[in-house]
Design a protein around this nucleic acid. Structure first.
Lengths: 335, 335
DNA sequence: CTGAAAGCGCTTACAG
DNA sequence: CTGAAAGCGCTTACAG
């Protein structure tokens, strides 16, 4: 690969001038720029990012850390976030992390290596913020989980209004005559969102005078079809009279449908089902998922805006719950 | 962030010795190692990768370039590839590329920045190899597409036996009484696999004396539910008597099912359907997809093996077609 | 507008 | 076994 030195030699200019052309500095003569750009083109020269970032004390990119690969909801959200950054002329650098990894420690490394001007977290275990986030001074924003409790001044957060969403879903099931309701998905230990949703469900059920034993009628699972399938199996075995299920993600919901079908039950004929997220594959599913659609567009927009406000004008942290939409699919039946 | 210099100062050793500890060189006294490791631990020191890779002339990692983010089939294949590398104690570095990006140019950059000892390509446009692959000397392997035609000595390839798979699918449909068959998905221009499958289908149909007009009964689409839905719409409008569809990916197949349902047709009652890939979400779908399952385990294993054989013993390029499995789901009906 | 030079944080012969 | 020093490919004050 050609280096900046080669380009300098070929062009007759110094590496300093070549560097200025690469970085689009204004203080370069048109002539120099033309010559150097031509040679860069010819040589198919691409600056070495290692050298670049090693030297740079700050970059103009916003780093996006996505926890988990196959998460369709994050794929959707990420797309929106990138669009919003793009619209504002901001550069994005996406980093995918393993499901189990510590997103805060990873961001520490990204900071030291990439020097981003801001960080957007998507997913990850909330607890990790307690350990090392205090070392981070770059403006950050957490999406789809609330960071209010953490109380960091440089960490905003935008999540769906889980409380209202869960309330809406359960009330909708109740209105449709359901009294034997199970809930599936999430992690009480790692996710604020799960707790908020679950508490809201329980409150509504209690107020409606409907019995709900969390130990028996709720089960934690990861956000996959596989775990939805397995979780549903346990749930149904413990609660054979279940007539409705609220799944805390659409992927889980699809697994639930499959399990029910496998034991001869159909959705919504035998069991009604509401999902969460509103990912597109839920709407390509047959039956179309009835679900809480998280407003990824607004979450992305507000997240990006608040981050830039912090970066450019040193605004403080904001925490907001974003309204959801209810997608009336084909998986709830009145009984 | 602490640097190697800080660690050196705190430990009383030179940065050279600290570097040797980090890189697990043997020529370090137990005492020095113990002291330095303790301080690294305390300081939570993580070496700067930019500096590391800038200096290194070669790394021990295998780079994996994945084209496209949301591709569930690649997610499955990637998991298997990582497992195979892991099993052999090899390190992997995964790079996700945009759907439309030039994977060969990107790999050129990865080579100059990361100095991997080998590269595994998953997906991407075959044509890009013609332009710049000749500049690459590192051992490479292409998965899920055949590189036989390209004739590079450092590029092996492993793909499913598309020809037999397509033959099997079409024959299965014919055996089940279907004569009005449409095919959907892929790109004739960019994918060897698409061409091989399509040609094989046409051959079988011709031999069976079944009319097939490619212009009318085949449609190119990308591998998404969305495009499967839209593509199916066109296909059905042009071929209202269709009784069976062969979709060249499971995602497409799911979109097809949804479209048919939306016009009041059910799979397999009204239209039979065979997919391709065998991704897990096809098996969580209702109805379960009847599909050609690509053997990602074997593709991954052979790919990794051949790469390491080339790296360690300078073996030549191998091109192989891997046998498929037929998953008899619930989407084909005898008529 | 341009060049010469320092330095980013590491690794790696080289010498001892 | 350890240290001093060169150098990876860039960027960025500084001087002119």
């Amino acid at each position: 690969m050609a280096t900046i030195k080669d380009i300098a030699k070929k062009s007759g200019y110094s590496i300093g001038t070549v560097s200025r052309v690469i970085n689009k500095h204004k203080d370069v003569s048109d002539k120099a720029r033309a010559i150097i750009e031509k040679i860069i083109e010819e040589e198919n020269f691409q600056p070495n990012m290692n050298a670049r970032f090693l030297k740079k004390t700050s970059s103009n990119a916003v780093a996006i850390l996505v926890v988990g690969h196959g998460n369709l909801f994050f794929a959707d959200l990420l797309e929106n976030v990138q669009k919003e950054l793009d619209k504002r002329g901001e550069e994005a650098a996406v980093f995918y992390l393993d499901e189990k990894s510590n997103q805060v420690d990873e961001s520490l490394r990204v900071i030291s290596e990439r020097k981003p001007k801001g960080i957007i977290y998507m997913g990850g275990n909330l607890n990790f913020f307690n350990d090392n986030f205090k070392k981070i001074e770059v403006p950050c924003v957490l999406l789809t989980n609330s960071a209010t409790q953490l109380g960091f001044n440089n960490l905003s957060s935008f999540a769906s209004d889980d409380e209202s969403a869960a309330k809406y879903a359960i009330e909708y099931l109740i209105e449709n005559g359901h009294k034997n309701i199970c809930i599936i998905g999430g992690s009480k230990e790692n996710s604020q969102a799960t707790n908020r949703r679950l508490e809201s469900c329980e409150k509504v059920l209690k107020e409606a005078g409907i019995k709900f034993d969390e130990k028996k009628q709720y089960i934690e699972t990861r956000y996959s079809m596989q775990e939805g399938y397995q979780g549903c199996e346990k749930l149904i075995k413990n609660n054979p009279k279940t007539t409705a299920i609220f799944a805390l993600s659409d992927s889980i919901a699809i697994g639930v449908i499959r399990y029910l079908k496998d034991i001869g039950k159909s959705v919504p004929e035998d069991v009604s089902l509401i999902g969460f997220d509103g990912i597109s594959s839920g709407q390509f599913n047959t039956p179309r998922l009835t679900t809480i659609k998280q407003d990824t567009k607004v979450i992305a927009k507000k997240g990006v805006e608040s981050l830039l406000l912090r970066i450019n004008y040193n605004y403080g942290a904001i925490h907001e719950y974003i309204p959801f939409t209810f997608l009336k699919g084909e998986t709830v039946k009145k009984i």
